[in-house]
Amino acid sequence: MASHQEFERSIGEVVERIGHLKELANARGLDVDDELKRLEARLDELRAETFKSLTPMERVLIARHPQRPHSLDVIERIFDDFVELHGDRAFRDDPAVVCGWGRLAGRSIMVIAQQKGRNTKENLKRNFAMMHPEGYRKALRLMRLAEKFRRPIITIIDTPAAYPGLGAEERGQAEAIARNLLEMSLIETPIIAAVLGEGGSGGALGLSVADRIVMFEYAIYSVISPEGCASILWRENSEEARQKAASALRLTAPDLFELGVIDEILAEPQGGAHENWDLTASLLAEALQRHLDDLLARPVEELLARRYEKYRKMGAWAGD
């Protein structure tokens, strides 16, 4: 079902052979159980091998995998009674971000999620999940709504970047992101950010000032894309420069955990989230519930104080 990237090619070949074998068995009524078992064992082995030693750039490709579950795929699997709400009440609705009420284990939650498209038509509508200022303002409006009704907020992060375009600049992309950073640090209700795929710089940060940040194992989060970094620092856009940039930026989930930026790494199904959407969604649901239980038990003053400290201590320097 899933299409495969270059580094997964051998996995893809075995998956294909299994498919052929099953077809053959069905068509001709052959007994292929032994052969199937052998191939499936080989598949497990290959996946374990490939994913044990992924390079940072390969992780970037998994985070952007065309078959990776996107926000709505996850939302429909874990939230009940999801109702989408639209618009920033000032300019327009930004379809690059989906916001609305959902219910998780009986609790109403405001969900704010960046949404990639799966094909050209969808991507035209979703703008490849690259938000405009009105998207950040819609998100803030609805986070305020959650605060008003004392409901927690969950943001799902999956964007290459905030959109760098004419209209975005005219309408104050920088101000919109800055405003969200400030307001999210003060919102009096629990916030959890979940990095599902790509955490693209300020575009991702504008929705992820939170009490907890959880991140999928092969998701990435970076100040700049490897491509952008390669073209600026190495002044070239070669495969080699991109790989160097991806390694230098320390953008993988284990890196971010080590740097003290995220709170938890969510293990992905074997072979990556794209191999099993249901399992991916249930792993996220479990983590969200666990963090919500903990955060909702704390007084709001404590939440805000801890949220402040969390960001206040990020960074590294010498001297005092």
Binding site: A178, L181, L182, E183, S185, L186, S201, G202, L205, V209, Y221, S222, V223, I224, C229, I232, L233, A248, L249, R250, L251, D255, L256, L259, V261, R307, Y308, Y311, R312, M314, G315, A316
Partner: peptide
């Protein structure tokens, strides 16, 4: 903008400075 060579830690300075200004704002 952000200092690329400090990676995501430089990105987080945006959140840090904005949070500090949030308190001032109040």
């Amino acid at each position: 903008g952000a200092r690329m060579m400090e990676g995501v830690l430089s990105l987080m300075q945006m959140a840090k400075t904005s949070s500090a200004l949030g308190r001032l704002h109040r």
